[in-house]
Design a protein around this nucleic acid. Structure first.
Length: 680
DNA sequence: TTATCCAAGATTTTT
DNA sequence: TCTTGGATAA
C-alpha cells in the first residue's frame, strides 16, 4: 500500500523535531519504519538511529517490518529496542561512572517489596508496615517523575517524610547489592547524563536520530532521557495519540505531547487522521465518544471504507448469561459468515471477567486463548531459578539470596537468617559476604555457620564454572544438583500442577540456551551476566509467538488490546462501576486536580481504544446484575453507551430512563460508594 | 523447621 | 468466590 501525503510528509521531515499525532489505525508503525529507511537513504548510518518502543513485542514487530523494507546489510547497528533495554545498555557500558559493578542485578516489583519489608523490619523507620504497597508505589512514582531521594528529602512535608527516608534507604541498599530496579533503568542514565557532560556527548554522537512509538505513554523520566539524548536541536520523531493514553496510572504523562511545543519552538506537528482499519460507522462512534474529553489536538478519524453494520448493544440478566449468549453469538456468526476464529476478540475491563467467558466458550467448543494474566516471571519456580542465576552473576544480590537460601530446604531457617541479616546490616555488607566473616561465628551456632558457608562455597564454585565455559551445561547440572525437580514435586498440590511448574522451568532453560548462544555469537564477554539481565526485561508475550498463528478467539483486557485489531470485536461488561471502573478511595484523595474528571477521561479513552480495535463489526454488552466477590449486585449500563450516536446503535433493551436520569444515577452510585469506602 | 488453617483483600500492569 | 500470605501448633 502506498503512503498518503501526510504520512509522506512525516517521513520526509528531518530538519525539525517532529510530533506525529497518529489516530488509531492511521499507520503509525508504517511511518516509523519508512522513516528509518528514508534516513538511511539520506546517508545517515543505521548505527546512528534508534527507534524506541515500550514493549518487546512492539520492538520485535518493528524490527521485522524494517527488515522487509531494506536489506540487512544497510540495517547493521540499528537500535530498535524498548526504553528499558536501551537504559540497561547504557548502564552496562557506563557502570563505572555510576559506581556499579558490571554484573548488575535487576530487581522486579516483588524484589522491591521484599527489600522494603526487610528495611522496615530491621531498622526503626517511622513507617507504618501496613502501608508497604503504598510506599513501594510512591517510590516508583518518584522515580518516574525523575525525582531522586535528595530532592524528595529536601522538599518533603511532614507527612511525606517517612516515605522519603525509606526511599533513600532503599536506594542505598540497591547500590550495596549492586542492583537496580526497573525504574532505575531510565532514571540512572538520566542522572548519569546530567552529571557527566562528556558521557552524554558520546551518546549524543552515537545516537543522532531518535524515533519514539506510543509517545503518549512516556513518563517524566523518559521524556528527560529523550531530551538529553537528542540535544537542543531535537533530532527526533515522536509518534503518539493522546486519545490512547491509558497508562497515566502508571506514571505516563500524556501532557508530554503538549510540552514538546514549549520545549522545542521549531517543532513541526503532523496529524494522521485517515484510518485504514475500521468502517465509517465505527469511527463515527469512536469520534463521538472521545469528543466528550477535552482536547489540545483536535482530530477526527475518517475512513475510505464503507459505512458498515450498526453497532449492537446487548443486554443480559447476569454475567453468566452474558458469556453464554456471546459464545452462542460468535458460534452463529462464525458459521453464517464462514469466518475464522481468530477474527473475534472479546475485550473486558478486568481480568477476572475472563473466567466465565472461558467456560462458556469451552462449552460451545470454541477454541480461544486468554492473553494477559500472570506474567511468566511471576511464577514461583521461574523466580527461584532466576534468583539462582542472579546470584551466580552477582553474589551481593540479597533479594535473590534470601529468596533461594532455603529453597529447596537446606535447614537454614528464619532464626539463622535473622541473625545473619542483623550482622550484615551492622557491618554494611551483603549477606553473602557476611557468611565468610569470622565474627559471624560469635552470633550463630557452628552448625548454622557451616551450612551457610557450604552453600556459599558451592555457589561460587558453580558460578565460576558457568563463567568459564559450557554455561548451559553447568546450569542444567545445577538444577539437577539442588534436586529442584523433587522440590517442585513435593510442593505441588497436584500432579498436573507439578507438570506445569516443571514445564516452566524447562522453558526457562530453553530460553537461556537460546540467549546464551546469541550472546556467544555476538562475541560478548560476561555472557551469563548479559543474559540474566536481558531475561529480566522479557515478558510472557515472547512465548506466545507461536500461539498467535493458531485459529482461536482472543480474550483480553482493553489495556492489552492496544495496538491490535480484529474484524469482530465484543466489548463486554459495559456497566457503571466496571467500565468507568470505580477507583479506590485512597487513590482519590491522592490526586490534587479534579481527580474524578481525569479519572473518567482515562476510562473513556480505554473505551475508545476498545472501539477502535474493531474493523467490521462491534458489539457491546452489559448485565443487569453481576456477581462480584460472591455477591449479586444490580448494574447500570455504562454512561459511555449514552455518549455514542443513538442512530448508529441497535439497542433493543434500551431502558426508558432518560440520559440525564441515568447520568445522575451513575454519579450518585459512585458518590455513595466513595462515601462508604471513606467511612471504613 | 515445617505444616496447616484462617483471614483479608481482590483494576488496568508495556519493563 | 478465590487466592495468597501470615500466624500458630506440632
Amino acid at each position: 500500500m502506498s503512503l498518503n501525503p501526510h504520512q509522506r510528509a512525516a517521513i520526509k521531515e528531518i530538519n525539525h523535531p517532529l510530533l506525529v499525532i497518529a489516530g488509531a489505525g492511521s499507520g503509525k508503525t508504517r511511518v516509523i519504519t519508512h522513516k528509518i529507511a528514508h534516513l538511511i537513504d539520506q546517508g545517515l548510518a543505521a548505527r546512528h538511529i534508534a527507534a524506541l518502543t515500550f514493549t518487546n513485542k512492539a520492538a520485535r514487530e518493528m524490527k521485522a517490518r524494517v527488515g522487509k523494507l531494506m536489506d540487512s546489510k544497510a540495517l547493521r547497528g540499528l537500535t530498535v529496542s524498548t526504553f528499558h533495554s536501551l537504559g540497561l545498555d547504557i548502564l552496562r557500558r557506563e557502570h563505572k561512572a555510576l559506581g556499579f559493578k558490571a554484573s548488575l542485578s535487576i530487581f522486579d516489583e516483588q524484589d522491591r517489596l521484599a527489600l522494603l519489608k526487610d528495611i522496615l523490619e530491621h531498622s526503626k523507620h517511622p513507617c507504618n508496615p501496613d502501608k508497604l504497597p503504598h510506599y513501594a508505589w510512591q517510590i516508583g512514582a518518584w522515580k518516574n517523575d525523575c525525582l531522586p531521594p535528595e530532592q524528595i528529602l529536601a522538599q518533603a512535608d511532614a507527612e511525606q517524610q517517612p516515605a522519603a527516608c525509606l526511599y533513600e534507604e532503599y536506594n542505598r541498599c540497591l547500590k550495596a547489592y549492586n542492583a537496580v530496579d526497573f525504574d532505575d533503568l531510565i532514571l540512572l542514565p538520566v542522572q548519569l547524563f546530567q552529571e557527566h557532560g562528556e558521557i552524554l556527548e558520546r551518546w549524543q554522537h552515537k545516537l543522532r536520530y531518535l524515533l519514539v512509538d506510543e509517545y503518549q505513554d512516556t513518563n517524566q523520566t523518559q521524556y528527560r532521557l529523550l531530551n538529553l539524548l537528542t540535544g537542543p536541536l531535537g533530532r527526533f520523531t515522536v509518534v503518539g495519540d493522546d486519545d490512547q493514553s491509558i497508562y497515566a496510572w502508571r506514571g505516563a504523562r500524556p501532557e508530554n505531547l503538549q510540552r514538546l511545543k514549549q520545549d522545542y519552538p521549531r517543532l513541526k506537528i503532523i496529524m494522521l487522521e485517515q484510518n485504514y482499519r475500521s468502517t465509517g460507522r465505527i469511527l463515527k462512534a469512536a469520534n463521538a465518544l472521545i469528543r466528550h474529553n477535552p482536547h489540545v489536538f483536535e482530530k477526527k478519524l475518517w475512513s475510505a471504507y464503507g459505512f458498515g453494520d450498526p453497532i449492537r448493544v446487548l443486554s443480559h440478566a447476569d454475567d453468566l448469561a452474558e458469556a453464554q449468549q456471546i459464545a452462542a453469538d460468535i458460534l452463529h456468526h462464525h458459521f453464517q459468515h464462514r469466518t475464522q476464529w481468530h477474527d473475534y476478540a472479546i475485550l473486558y475491563r478486568s481480568n477476572h471477567q475472563s473466567r466465565v467467558f472461558e467456560r462458556a466458550l469451552r462449552e460451545q467448543r470454541i477454541p480461544y486463548k486468554v492473553s494477559g494474566g500472570p506474567s511468566f516471571f511471576s511464577y514461583t519456580e521461574v523466580k527461584d531459578v532466576l534468583a539462582y542465576l542472579r546470584l551466580f552473576v552477582n553474589q551481593d544480590d540479597d533479594a535473590a539470596f534470601l529468596r533461594i537460601i532455603n529453597v529447596p530446604k537446606r535447614e537454614i531457617g528464619p532464626t539463622t537468617l535473622e541473625k545473619l541479616g542483623a550482622y550484615a546490616q551492622q557491618r554494611h555488607i551483603s549477606l553473602f559476604s557476611a557468611c565468610f566473616e569470622l565474627g559471624l561465628e560469635q552470633h550463630l551456632p557452628a552448625r548454622a555457620t557451616a551450612r551457610l558457608k557450604g552453600f556459599c562455597e558451592w555457589l561460587v564454585d558453580t558460578a565460576d564454572r558457568a563463567q568459564r565455559g559450557d554455561t548451559l551445561g553447568v546450569l542444567e547440572e545445577f538444577i539437577d544438583r539442588i534436586e529442584y525437580k523433587d522440590h517442585l514435586q513435593n510442593l505441588a498440590a497436584s500432579p498436573k500442577q507439578f507438570e506445569r511448574k516443571w514445564q516452566n522451568v524447562r522453558e526457562l532453560l530453553d530460553w537461556l540456551g537460546r540467549l546464551i548462544e546469541e550472546e556467544e555469537d555476538a562475541g560478548g564477554k560476561d555472557i551469563l551476566s548479559a543474559v540474566v539481565a536481558k531475561i529480566m526485561l522479557m515478558d510472557v508475550l515472547e512465548r506466545q509467538r507461536d500461539d498467535s498463528a493458531q485459529d482461536q478467539v482472543t480474550l483480553m483486557t482493553l489495556h492489552a488490546a492496544k495496538g491490535l485489531e480484529f474484524p469482530h470485536v465484543y466489548i463486554v461488561g459495559m456497566e457503571e462501576g466496571l467500565l468507568p471502573h470505580h477507583k479506590s478511595a485512597e487513590e482519590t484523595t491522592n490526586d490534587t486536580s479534579t481527580p474524578e474528571d481525569l479519572y473518567i477521561e482515562e476510562e473513556r479513552r480505554l473505551a475508545y481504544v476498545g472501539i477502535t480495535r474493531a474493523q467490521k463489526t462491534l458489539t457491546f454488552s452489559y448485565c443487569r446484575q453481576r456477581k462480584r466477590y460472591g455477591e449479586v449486585n444490580d448494574c447500570q449500563p455504562s454512561r459511555f453507551l449514552e455518549e455514542l450516536p443513538e442512530e448508529d446503535l441497535e439497542w433493543p433493551e434500551k431502558s426508558t430512563l432518560s440520559p440525564e436520569e441515568k447520568k445522575a444515577r451513575g454519579k450518585a452510585a459512585l458518590a455513595n460508594l466513595k462515601n462508604l469506602l471513606n467511612e471504613t
